[in-house]
Design a protein around this nucleic acid. Sequence first.
DNA 1: GGTTGACCTGGAGTGCGCTCGAGGTGGGAT
DNA 2: ATCCCACCTCGAGCGCACTCCAGGTCAACC
Lengths: 119, 119
Amino acid sequence: MSVYTPAQVVQETGFSIDTLRYYEKIGLLERVDRNAAGQRRFSQEDIGWLGTLRCLRDTGMPIAQMLRFAELVRAGDHTIPDRIKLLEEHDDQVRAQIANLGERQSYIRNKISYYRSLI
Amino acid sequence: MSVYTPAQVVQETGFSIDTLRYYEKIGLLERVDRNAAGQRRFSQEDIGWLGTLRCLRDTGMPIAQMLRFAELVRAGDHTIPDRIKLLEEHDDQVRAQIANLGERQSYIRNKISYYRSLI
DNA sequence: GGTTGACCTGGAGTGCGCTCGAGGTGGGAT
DNA sequence: ATCCCACCTCGAGCGCACTCCAGGTCAACC
């Protein structure tokens, strides 16, 4: 199976149908194919791309930057170095996020221990 | 020194002055002391509490939940078990966040490696 | 042939967490 | 004396990322 109805894509990707339409509208998703009735039929490629989007979004990338990435992808292979740069910068963000969360986590755990010591 | 001007608190905590006023307004911060001219003078305790708030906030706790926590703290020592419960639940969230970020991070790194293999 | 349900479009609305603006006060340096 | 600057209050406004609504189409099943 390499064609997906909206409901199947919701199922697969976890994005809501409204979000899928929104992503298409703003150009994060290239014009999705339609059937004779005008209903969306997503391709295997769309699913893969949505997986990438989910990953970037879940790591806190703003939509504007995802949009830049989407444009680089569309522009062809000569943008690969730019894509690497963008992803590396984002990877740094993610690294920093994880480090920060780790620190905060110990604070929280200390607080819990402290509270435990009081009862 | 155990009294801080708004500017000093901004410096210490990283919250903007607007955010500090906002937190006070919604009750995240108990009514802060004023000088004769009505200007805020934060105590050492305020600073400590703001540190806790920063930690919770930075780990993604919604304001509504921080508010519940603030109310528990104000309500006195008999709420300590509830506070522990709240923080433990939040700690789980943080754990999940870190795990998720870690997974996404490997996806991103694989993508980078893949792109590198193309050039 | 009627009903249901998944889908469509365009545009308005929502929730969160701030952020800004207007108009004003008070205190310290020149 | 006057200037500036940090601060005040109240209320409106903003940016982000969706989310919802009205009104409609089509296909399939009873």
